[in-house]
Structures are given as structure tokens and as C-alpha cells.
Computed example of a mutant assay.
Amino acid sequence: MMKQQNITRTKGITLILIGSILWGVSGAVAQYVFQKQHVSVEWLTAVRLLISGILLLAFSYRKEGKHVWEVWKNKKDALNLTLFGILGMLPLQYSFLAGIQHGNAATATVLQFLGPAVITCYLAIRSKRLPTFKEVSTVFLAVLGTFFLVTRGDIHSLSISGWALFWGLASAFALAFYTLQPYTLLQKWGANIVVGWGMLVAGLAFSFIHPPWEIEGQWSFPTYAGVTFIIIFGTLVAFYFYLESLRYLSASETSLLTSAEPLSAAFLSVIWLGVTLDFVQWLGAFCIISTIFILAAKKRDIKEINC
């Protein structure tokens, strides 16, 4: 019995680590196609959402059949799902990719990890209570880490562009909304259906801003390979592995192990794309990532689905 538990736990750990690393690697690949191949952030956002949404719903249809369509028959659920796609999924996907374009994959990914600290502040305010010591520590480390990451410790200068900081912080707030808003939908319909429709709704909405057939960039084999990797491995496979890991691990354990995402993004950015992070910036990244470990120790977990 104990041996079987160890096997399933190892499987869960393996799945979430691979999924998190794929998320991190896809961030570095996105930086490459934006900054080296000049692919449009708007185009990649629309195409990534549309293709991933369609494939995820097709996968769900194979398992659940016509149940995939039932969510649209309930007016309240249909409205919430539409809001999730347009106000949650779309801002999260676009702000994260825009943060990479204006900065780099390392800082964009780390700044997005401020999301749990934003959630902590929101829940404390909504419940009209004073924050606990653990929550205060989390917010302090998040703010301190952000300061180190974007200024290198010098309050008079920014080590990244203003737009990179703006979109990085925007992705953290978008992640908070994305995590909290669809809670009831996820409980009722499941993650595959909710996220699949959320992606498709977001992709269709964004197509009115940037049609997917308006293609930009320098297209060669590395560009095609990079975009394919982002859509298939950095979105579909990574998301599927994350969901599968929840069958074997608790939400707090998966939250801890998703810290592999910013670490892999930072590692690839440095060794492949020539991004330089000094000691103070690494310290800032460590402060932000450590908030995940602190929050994961709480008894009440918030299940989170990443980009």
C-alpha cells in the first residue's frame, strides 16, 4: 500500500514539474519569437487562445460528449464563463506575453508570481479582518522582491522598462481575477470545459482587435517551431499535466512545485537569450517565489490554474 502511494506521489510530482518547466520554457521561447523573429504579441495571443481552446474542448468532448455544451444552457453560468474569458483569460494571456516582449521571460514570469500575494490582500479585505503574520510576511516579501527585481536596489532607476513593469504587474492582478472568479464554474463543470471555453471566448473576442490571419514576423523553421511549441507544449501539454498532477497531489503541493516555472524561465533567459540578472535581482526573484512556499503552508488552499 505504501509502495503504491509512493508511486502515485512520484507520478504527481513528475507531472507538475514537467508542466511547470514547459510553462517556463515557453516563456523563453515567446521572448525569442517576439524579439528575434518579430512575431506580433497580438497575433500570438489570438492564435494561442483559439487553437488551445479548440483542442482542449475537442479533448473534453471525447471524454464527456455533449456535456461540453451544457454550460451555455444556464444563463448565469454562460454569463460568468463569458466574463471569465474576456476579463480573466484574455488579460492574463496578453499581459504576460506583453511583459515578455517589453522585458524578458524571467522578469515577466517572476512578476506574475505576485498574483498569490494580490489574492491574499483581496481575501483579507473582503473578509474585513486584519491580515495574519503569515499574510503580512507574504506581502512584504512580494513588495521587497519586486523592488529588488525592477530596481537592482537603486530606488532612482529601473532595471527594466516601464512597460515591462506595467504588464508584469497587470499579469499578477489578472492572475488573481483568473484564479478567484471562476471558482463556482470549476466546481460545477470542471477545469477542462471552463478553461477550454474561456480560451475560445477570449480568442474570438481578441480576434476583433487583431485578426489571426494578419500574420507578422520573420517566418522560418525556428519561428514555426517556436510558435508550435508555445501552443502545444507550453499551453496544452503543460495544462494537462498540471490537471493530472492534482489527482495525486494536494493543491498546496502543486503550488510549491510550480516554482519550477520562473526558475526554468530565468535559467533559459540567461543561458540562451543573453539576459543578465545580477545578485540583487536573483534575490528579488527568490523573495517573490518564497511567498508561494509560505502561502502553501496555509490549511485553506485556493486551487489555481496557470497560463
Rank of each mutant, 00 (worst) to 15 (best):
K3I: 14
N6Q: 15
T8N: 13
K11P: 05
K11G: 12
T14R: 00
I16A: 08
I16F: 01
L17P: 01
I18D: 02
G19R: 00
G24V: 05
V29D: 02
V29I: 10
Q31T: 00
K36L: 03
W43F: 12
L44C: 00
T45R: 09
T45Q: 05
L49E: 06
G53P: 04
I54V: 15
L55V: 09
L56K: 09
A58P: 05
A58K: 01
F59Y: 15
R62D: 01
K63A: 13
G65Y: 09
K66P: 03
K66C: 00
E70L: 14
V71G: 03
W72P: 08
K73S: 03
K75F: 07
L79V: 12
N80I: 01
L81V: 05
G88D: 11
M89V: 15
L92E: 10
L92I: 07
Y94S: 05
L97K: 00
A98D: 06
N104L: 09
F113T: 02
C121P: 02
Y122T: 12
I125N: 05
I125Q: 07
I125E: 00
R126W: 11
R126I: 13
S127P: 08
K134P: 03
V139E: 08
V143C: 04
L144M: 14
V150L: 09
R152H: 14
R152A: 15
I160A: 03
A172N: 04
Y178T: 07
T179M: 04
Q181N: 02
L186C: 06
A191C: 03
G198R: 07
A205R: 11
E214Q: 15
S220Q: 11
P222R: 03
T223E: 01
T223N: 01
V227F: 04
I230R: 03
A238D: 11
F239K: 03
Y240M: 13
F241A: 04
Y242K: 06
R247A: 13
Y248S: 12
L249F: 05
E253H: 07
T258S: 10
L263V: 13
L268G: 08
I271S: 10
W272E: 03
L273Q: 06
G274W: 11
T276N: 14
A285T: 15
A285H: 02
I288Y: 06
S290V: 05
F293V: 15
L295M: 11
A296I: 11
R300C: 01
N306T: 15
C307I: 10
